[in-house]
Amino acid sequence: MGFLAFLLLGLIAGAIAKLILPGRQGGGWIGTLIVGVVGALLGGWLGGLLFGGRGLGTFFELRTWLFAIGGALIVLIVWGIVTGGRRRRARP
């Protein structure tokens, strides 16, 4: 999978993960891209460990999307635990 395809996968997977998890996660589209890319890397690594070396495949494979979205969900959950749900308020 090419670099741009991986970034697109990360952006979409991060957006889907944010839609699945309840609550409000900030970050905008750059934060979503970072969460998705880190999640795709994590999901591919975990998929490789659990399924004998079969991590992320090509862009259009279902397992690629499931691993990426699952990894992004894990990243969002861990991020919520680490930050304790703290949110910065905008100054008036």
Rank of each mutant, 00 (worst) to 15 (best):
R54I: 06
G27N: 07
A72K: 09
F51A: 14
L66V: 15
I16S: 04
A90P: 07
G31L: 07
A13W: 09
F6N: 12
P22T: 08
A13T: 11
L66A: 15
G31N: 07
L66T: 15
F51W: 14
L9D: 07
G27K: 12
G80R: 15
I69E: 09
R54T: 06
G71S: 07
W65K: 05
G43L: 08
G53Q: 04
L42I: 13
G55M: 00
A72E: 10
L9S: 03
A17L: 05
L4N: 08
R24F: 09
T32P: 12
T58W: 03
W29G: 05
L33S: 12
T32Q: 12
L19G: 15
W29L: 14
W29M: 14
G2M: 08
A72G: 10
L21E: 14
G26I: 00
R54M: 04
A90L: 12
V37E: 01
L11I: 10
G2P: 14
G39Y: 07
G2L: 10
I69R: 06
W45I: 04
I16E: 04
T32G: 15
A15G: 14
G85Y: 05
V35Q: 00
L50W: 08
R63V: 04
V38Y: 10
G10L: 04
I34V: 15
G23H: 12
T58E: 15
L19H: 11
V35Y: 00
G36S: 10
G80A: 15
G47A: 04
L9H: 05
F67P: 06
K18A: 11
V38A: 14
T83A: 06
G14I: 01
A17I: 04
L7D: 01
W45L: 13
W65V: 06
A17G: 09
K18I: 02
L62T: 14
W79H: 08
V38N: 00
W65D: 09
M1C: 06
R88M: 10
F51Y: 14
F60W: 13
I77N: 02
G47H: 02
